[in-house]
Design a protein around this nucleic acid. Structure first.
Lengths: 197, 197
DNA sequence: ACTTCATATGTGCACTGTAAACTTTTTCTT
DNA sequence: AAGAAAAAGTTTACAGTGCACATATGAAGT
């Protein structure tokens, strides 16, 4: 091709994979994960309709990458206001508020992160980032509440409880399942019943 | 058409709407809600590819009907072992176990019931059935735990807590997000921390 | 009998994901 | 520096999909 005055678009995009993820993420937030289209992403980025195939084996692979990115962001939200050496209670509060803030800021992404039939849950990247989130949750769950029965499982119970609760709250909140006037001036923290400690 | 030996299929199906819902539900459990196709449902029921249009305005309408059906079933699961005049604690336990059992028995349906971009949350039938579930939840939430702050909102807090917790648990459980060996011989009830009462 | 209407069929279209063959550019090897 | 190999684009092809629209069928009401 001969060069003319206007800058000729290079044959190779240079950073197509990231560009596609970015376009997909925007489409995700705007139209929901079931309305994402690889072709639309490709066109949005200024590339041919089937170019994404070079970077993602299939649609699931792209959605999985998006979900993995989501877990990384969730981790960042939880860490954002996490005080370093402070007491366990204030650390817990900060992380929970961060968790919910993430779900509120990125509701469609948060939903995708738990959509079993759209992401491949065995993906290495995904698992890695999920694990990183779980580390934080396990950390802040320590010393929370008392449980009956097998005491060797106390840690597990604390983790399962706190993750169940905050996940459920985040999803019901973003799905508008709570009554609006109940929510006036409330945060997650107000909904946790008082426990022994 | 002339009649021959084999029984001639009547032109009208007779109960197509229900038949489609049933086929869709089976496809849902087998392949997940993002792999449901109206045309496949139609063919499965033995009718032309576009026949469903007479009964469902669009795909969302069918999925919404499916979700509404799901809330009705969830309600039945919660009520199944609900003792009548017994004390609040045992009523609560029975309903929670029923809730989780439903999610485990119908994980894909349960996921659809919270898929914001696939069901129209303003549908009258859906709202009605959601409301019926919420009545049970509000009932069993009464007298659960103690909360700080505005006492006029205690009921709301109890409801929001218990729904958040059980929903989160059910979804994390069906999404296999809990470690298998942590789960040995555990139920939802084991994960609820001991409260004042 | 005639009309009416709900319910079915068939056709057509834009859009989707994916496979496959080909082209262009970059990178590696010698 | 030259040619081979690999990477990253393109185009074409195809089976599905949801939906709009025109048409056909049969049952029910007059």
């Amino acid at each position: 091709m001969k060069s003319n005055g206007t800058a000729a678009k290079p044959y190779h995009h240079g950073n197509l994979k990231d560009a596609l993820l970015q376009a997909a993420r925007q489409m995700l937030e705007e139209e929901g994960h079931s309305n994402i289209s690889l072709r639309k992403c490709a066109v949005a980025v200024g590339v041919s309709a089937t170019a994404p195939q070079n970077h993602f084996a299939n649609k699931t692979a792209l959605l999985t990458a998006l979900a993995a990115q989501g877990y990384a962001d969730l981790q960042a939200y939880m860490r954002k206001d996490l005080p370093d050496g402070a007491n366990q209670s204030s650390r817990r509060k900060a992380a929970l508020l961060g968790y919910v803030a993430f779900a509120q800021d990125h509701p469609a992404l948060y939903e995708l992160m738990f959509a079993r039939d759209r992401v491949s849950s065995s993906d290495a990247d995904l698992l890695h980032n999920v694990g990183a989130c779980f580390v934080i949750l396990a950390d802040i769950a320590k010393g929370f509440g008392t449980f009956q029965g097998d005491e060797t499982k106390t840690d597990a119970k604390q983790q399962m409880f706190i993750w169940s609760f905050v996940h459920g709250y985040a999803q019901l909140l973003t799905a508008n399942r709570f009554k609006k006037d109940d929510m006036q001036g409330m945060t997650v923290l107000d909904i946790i019943p008082e426990l022994g400690n």
